[in-house]
């Protein structure tokens, strides 16, 4: 792992001995087995593994979408799961702490780029004018401000993914979960998006966890984990530079 100077090195995401199984008896499927993982501020890590290895399940557990069967999950020092959910309002927790980036951007087709970003702020009850202002700032930061009034259908894949990243960052979350963030992009644009995520991680001291199969961007991660049959098997050294 590359050691970089960080003001706070306590993990933002702490996954301890988390297991998740679906079904019981003969139909039981162990999606995650005793998985432990720490992600610190500014880190960008990748989860690799074949289909069905548990990558998405782990992402869903960290995103408080799927309830683990056992283990402990702590986000920003706040233990949210320890044998059971300790927070009643997981929706609010996701809104405040976690940003999501999707494989196929998942922008709302009836909102322009600005409002696709502003919707995340709107849900957090930020006044509309302030939400739009912050959205435009984010779009400018991601160098897509010139497309702020475009509907998703009019955006290229790379542009749409940058709008999606802006939406994920709107509420300044310190945990960003990305599911195949570059799958729909060519190698050049995939590189640009990953550089952008790395920049964000550094500047905002956020932890980024990405599921990917894209070998072209492996060098952009601080650590790469391999999941196989629900076990976090290996951790490869990062090759990225800060």
């Amino acid at each position: 792992m590359i050691e970089t100077s960080r003001p706070d090195t306590r993990p933002i995401v702490e996954v301890r001995n988390v297991s998740k199984h679906f079904g019981e008896g003969e139909t039981r499927v162990d999606a995650l087995r005793d998985v432990s993982l720490d992600v610190r501020p500014g880190e960008v890590i990748a989860l690799l593994g074949p289909s069905g290895s548990g990558k998405s399940t782990l992402l869903n557990v960290i995103g408080c979408i799927t309830e683990p069967s056992e283990g402990k999950l702590t986000l920003e020092g706040d233990t949210v799961y320890d044998g059971r959910w300790l927070r009643d309002d997981l929706r609010k927790l996701r809104l405040e702490k976690i940003g999501f980036i999707f494989q196929s951007h998942n922008l709302l087709p009836f909102l322009d780029a600005t409002d696709n970003v502003a919707i995340a702020l709107d849900l957090a009850h930020v006044p509309r004018a302030d939400a739009r202002k912050r959205a435009i700032e984010l779009l400018d930061y991601l160098e897509i401000g010139h497309r702020k009034s475009a509907l998703p259908a009019k955006l290229s894949g790379g542009e749409a993914q940058r709008v999606a990243i802006a939406r994920a960052l709107a509420n300044k979350p310190r945990i960003i979960l990305a599911d195949e963030p570059t799958a729909a992009l060519d190698s050049k644009r995939a590189g640009i998006v990953m550089d952008l995520l790395r920049k964000l991680a550094r500047e905002q001291q956020a932890a980024i966890i990405a599921v990917t199969h894209d070998e072209k961007i492996f060098d952009r991660f601080d650590r790469i984990y391999m999941l196989r049959d629900g076990r976090l098997e290996s951790e490869s050294a990062a090759v990225a530079s800060a």
Binding site: R91, K92, R94, N106, L108, A120, L123, R167
Partner: peptide, 16 residues
């Protein structure tokens, strides 16, 4: 439905 799932994921309450 996918957009609704997205909204729920990013924190939209059911009432919305």
């Amino acid at each position: 439905i996918r957009h609704i799932a997205t909204l729920k994921l990013i924190g939209a309450p059911d009432s919305r």
